[in-house]
Design a protein around this nucleic acid. Sequence first.
RNA 1: GGCGGCGUACCCAAGUGGCUAAGGGAGAGGUCUGCAAAACCUCGAUUCGUCGGUUCGAUUCCGACCGCCGCCUCCA
Length: 481
Amino acid sequence: MRTLSIFNSLTRTVEKFEPLNPPLVTYYSCGPTVYSRQHLGNMRSYLFADTLKRALEFDGFTVRHVMNITDVGHMTSDADAGEDKVEMAAHAEGRSPQELAARYTQAFLGDLEQLNVEPAEVYCRATDHITDMIGLIGRIIERGYAYVAPSGVYFDVVRYRACGRSVAEAKGSGRPGRLSRQRLEEQHSAQRLEHAPDKRSPHDFALWVLNQPRHLMQWDSPWGRGYPGWHVECSAMAMKYLGETIDLHSGGIDHIPIHHENEIAQSESATGKPFARYFVHNAFLVGSEGAKISKSAGRFPVLDDLVAAGINPLAFRLFCFAAKYRSELGFSLDALKAAERNLYYLWGFTKVARPEQPDAPFARDYYERFAEALNDDLNTPRALAAALELVAEAYRRSDLRVWQTLTALDRVMGLRLEAQLNYVRASRLPDDIQALVDRRTRARAERNFELADQLRQELVARGYEVRDRRDGSSSYAPRWS
RNA sequence: GGCGGCGUACCCAAGUGGCUAAGGGAGAGGUCUGCAAAACCUCGAUUCGUCGGUUCGAUUCCGACCGCCGCCUCCA
């Protein structure tokens, strides 16, 4: 078994990854709040999570991956006027929150499928786990880290941050958050003045929201009718499916200061145990001007936009694979097109590959390079370079026996090479296309190149790729599925 | 105000205290081909935002500056 080194946000260093009970890895990654389409920036995160999971599997681990689908409780802010994102969007679209959530959940899963993301072992909806959340909140209250106020049950951030010294002492000088390294008093609190007046501190966050009669989704709880806060579903569901201490937790870099900090706080104050042993965060996809692509900024491309532009979704997958997860990635059509060229380069190899033969010895070096790069904190760009050079080397040597290696690498890259091979091999030409092919073959035999070229143009226009070989034979295949 | 990050060729993007600064795209030239396409070969940053410092030696470490970005309010 190889050892993955990965940057752990908890320690801010690259560490050897060692799960609690190998070969099992318990992995929780943050899923979407389903009130809108997930844009390409979001998709980068899910692709990153997928690559991380595939890398662990490449190394021989068995990954149990849990992803949340948050369909309630995600507020637009923590102020009084904060509204539930799902309910707000539902209202705007004239649907029920349930309909809206179901619709965007489907769209989300469809996107993952198009990107060839391995399905998680468990997708869990927040609304299916209300009792788990209530149980967790109860434990937090018992341990003294949450309190009940008229407007809700709040996590007592000041008490938690005090951790080992008196609350009074900690007030205004609490220890910095483990992930964000921010001290409470250093945070810009001007924006938080609108907070619920019965909160003890502006930093406290809601575990359970009470007395919001206009809210549609409500459940009974020991503290009254209401609904859960945003972060608590992740803690509750992660623990339910993976245990009180999980191996690995990932998400976007923006989750470091709020969501994950809060998850850790509420989880560990409930259990007294470490919540996650490794936290891993991916950087943003940014627009051409270097600004992040964000939902709140309004317009942002979604996967369907790429498809509409004629770009294969897997090109986006490869595009993300070609950059390190911890670096910002600059999105542009040119850059995406470059990735698409690489995709077609690898797919094109299926037309000449020798899947029935064992690999030539030279393939081994490239496999090793790929594995080494991958395990070096997921250096996917270097891994990709190894894969591309493997194919180039095969062409160069005119020794095309590298298929076993290439497909092994593709179990991490996820470009569906195997499926592409089957597709290319299985596809028979439709009769009308075959007729054109026959006519062209005849024309070429008669050295009537004018007609042959005309027929080639026709075939290309119909979506077929024409490749004449040196020996005079030709291949006609649909231009990529 | 606090926390964090970035600046490598036309574009995307790795990387290292000193071996030729990965790889890809685009571009130029070539091989092959009836011509294409595909594939392969060659070329391409004497240089890594700027200025200092440490060092025998820095793109890589330190400092300052310039520029860009994220977070501290929902955000992958």
